[in-house]
Structures are given as structure tokens and as C-alpha cells.
Nucleic acid binder design. Structure first.
Lengths: 201, 201
DNA sequence: CCGGTGACCATATCGTAATCTGGTCACCTT
DNA sequence: AAGGTGACCAGATTACGATATGGTCACCGG
């Protein structure tokens, strides 16, 4: 199956890509709500109706933008986890960089942060994937930690992951993080410490 | 200093009490926002201005109602903690009954629940006291658990309490609890278990 | 002085008519 | 058929005057 046209070396960007690019620019400048489909259409020089040949809805475009934000964040987190030596350190790295990424986006790209937060609160597919991936990563770390004998093994794996995720919610959920920004400095280490102690044998 | 008039056995309720009573009735029927000071005034048969001789603001009345809700809840929680045998059980009792109280109020007195939630989100004195009291209770339990050798003692007490509180936020904060009602059944035991494991030696 | 109030003000809230926006569809052009 | 569009619609949103509300104050009667 041919994946892309791939006719020329630096081919003209596909219409779809143009839409995403325009959406990124507009969303990050004016926000999701205040950007209209007409704005996007004008930006790419086609009619509004044409956009619907590539995206089912405005939300679908929003999800694409979210994925665009979230994918590199996930990669950074995965890299940090990779770089950490012990399972303990990996758990710490997972949550510390996860929160740091969120915070950074909050201060540099407030508009996009709001979209991501909204996406999370509405449980869009883009956010659902991100959450699922983070949880899978967490689970794999705990599995490894158990295999190496660093973590306790009595509690059901699912329950442990569930508990950790909920405990981290105030920092890991963008909507909640907004209200807890001041608590990150002191509170985050406290919760991570709590989690690490709960995992220890 | 004389605390109450205390002239007759079942004396006429003080104006202040009448106001609180009327507020309780109106708030729980129509909600905080839709109850006007004029409504309250009419209910007690005095003028609106007169209410301000007893309360500085509508919010002050709201706080009185919150305290009225929260005080018995706190008593119930304290009793449950008292009844529990071990520090482990006391921690479990603290959070289980705390959440149960919230849930019950949510289903039986939705309007009042909303006021309490609002009070919490705005950090009114009524809620601040409740939170402070719960935290003090938690701290005393952990102190006892440490003294008895049931809980680990390395981690600073403050940090432990802080971490536990934040981890429980999704269930202990009325605003968040609303969005997590479905997660209580599975999630709450998971988080409490997590906390208990983190406390163990 | 104590118990109590009507009239008043700035702001919040509401009702609603006008406008805007997401989304659809028949249809056009090449 | 493939690429593309204007015109249209129901419901969301806005603008804004009218109304309602929290709060204050000078003042009244005994």
C-alpha cells in the first residue's frame, strides 16, 4: 500500500497538512473557540466546505492538534524513563517530566494548553490515547520493578496502577494542574515519595 | 462574658438563629445563588437591612450553613476513627467515612452539596477549617501509628500528610468527587491501599 | 441608645433580538 | 469522476437594554 503520494522530493504539503498547519497557527494565537472554520478555510485558500472532505468536524482538527502536542511530550517522557537507571528512578522520571512538560506548555503556549486541557476533560481520543500510553508505560515500569525484586508483588498490578494514577491526578491532569501550580514544588515530591514508598518491598 | 441570653427555658430563637434556619431551608430548596437576601428577610419577617446587623454578607450566611453541614460530618468521621482499632484501620476509616459522608450529601441534599463544593473551591473559612481539622486528625493518627511502631518514621511527618492529602484529593474534594463518582467503588480502595502501603514499615 | 427600616447605588444577571458558526448538500467545472 | 464551492439551516453565541440583587446609610420610633 502506497502511503503518501511521494512524487517529488519536497512535495507540496497535502491539503490535510495545510489545514493542520493553519489550525496550529490559529489555535495557538486565538484559541480553539475563537477560531472559526471560515478562518481556517481562508488561511488555506479554499472554501469552508472543502475542509470537511479531510476532517469530519472541528473537533477532529482539534484532536489532530492535541496529538501534535502530546506525541512529542510522550516521546520526551519515554526518553527520560529510558535514561533512568532503577525502576524507582523511572517512576520518578515518568511523573516529574510529565508534569514538567505540562507546566512548560502552560507557560509558553497557554492557548494550546487550554485545548489539551479541554480535550482531556472531554476525553477526546487524542487525550485518551495519551493517558492510555502513559498508563502502559507506568505498568511496564512496575512490572520490571517487580521482576527485579525492587517492588512488592502482593497487590494486584491493576490496583497498583489505578491507585498511582488517581493519586497523581492533581498533577497529571491539566485541568487540575492549573489549580495546583503552586503546590507542584512541594506537593509533587511528596506524592511521588508516597508512591515510591508504597511500591517498595 | 455572657454567651447567650439564657433567660427562659425554651427561649425564642435569636434573630441570628432564625436567619440561619431560614437560610438553611431556602438554600437547600432553591440553592445559594437563587436565594436572595430579600427572600431571607421576608422569611424572618424583618427588613433586608436588618440581616446585615447579624451577618456581614451573604457569603457569611453561606459559611454558617456550610459549617452546619460540615460540623456533624466531622463528628461522624472522628467517631469512626475513634472506633477503629489500629492506626491502619483509623486511616481507612478516616477516608472511607469522609467520602461516604460527601457522597450521601451529594445524593440527598444536592443543593447543599453544591454550596459546600463552592465553599471549598473558593476556600471559604468554613471549608478551610474543615480541611484543617481533617488534616489534623490525619496527622494525629500518623503520629500515633509511628509511636506504636506501625508506621515508618523516616519521612518527615509534614511531607507524609501533604502527600496523602493530595493523593486523596480526587475523593476528598467535593468539586473533584463529582467527576469521579463512578471511580469511588474501585478507585478509592486502590488509593487507600496505596497510602497504607506507603505508611507501613 | 437600641431595634429596625426605606430608599438608594453600583454591579451582576436576565431576556431577547440579531448575529455568528459548525455542518450539510446539491451542484458546478474540468 | 475528482476537485471544489455557494447557499442554506439549526442551534450556539453575542450585544445590550431592562431588571434584579447584594450591600450601605441616613434616619425613624420608643
Amino acid at each position: 500500500m502506497i502511503q503518501t503520494p511521494a512524487l517529488t522530493e519536497d512535495q507540496a504539503p497535502s491539503i490535510r497538512d495545510q489545514i493542520v498547519e493553519a489550525a496550529d497557527a490559529h489555535f495557538s494565537r486565538y484559541g480553539y473557540a475563537k477560531t472559526t472554520m471560515a478562518d481556517l478555510a481562508r488561511a488555506i485558500g479554499f472554501s469552508k466546505a472543502y475542509i470537511y472532505k479531510f476532517f469530519d468536524s472541528k473537533q477532529a482538527i482539534g484532536e489532530a492538534i492535541c496529538t501534535r502536542c502530546l506525541t512529542p511530550q510522550l516521546a520526551t517522557i519515554a526518553a527520560a524513563v529510558e535514561a533512568a537507571a532503577t525502576p524507582h528512578e523511572k517512576v520518578r522520571a515518568l511523573f516529574r517530566t510529565s508534569v514538567k512538560q505540562c507546566q512548560e506548555q502552560f507557560f509558553t503556549d497557554r492557548q494550546l494548553y487550554d485545548i489539551v486541557a479541554f480535550s482531556r476533560s472531554e476525553n477526546w481520543a487524542s487525550s485518551a490515547r495519551y493517558v492510555a500510553d502513559l498508563n502502559a508505560l507506568l505498568e511496564s515500569i512496575i512490572r520490571m520493578g517487580r521482576a527485579q525484586g525492587d517492588f512488592e508483588r502482593k497487590t494486584p498490578l491493576d490496583e497498583v496502577c489505578r491507585g498511582i494514577w488517581i493519586a497523581m491526578l492533581p498533577f497529571v491532569d491539566p485541568v487540575l494542574l492549573q489549580h495546583n501550580l503552586d503546590d507542584v514544588e512541594d506537593g509533587l515530591p511528596a506524592v511521588i515519595g508516597l508512591i515510591l514508598r508504597s511500591l517498595s518491598t
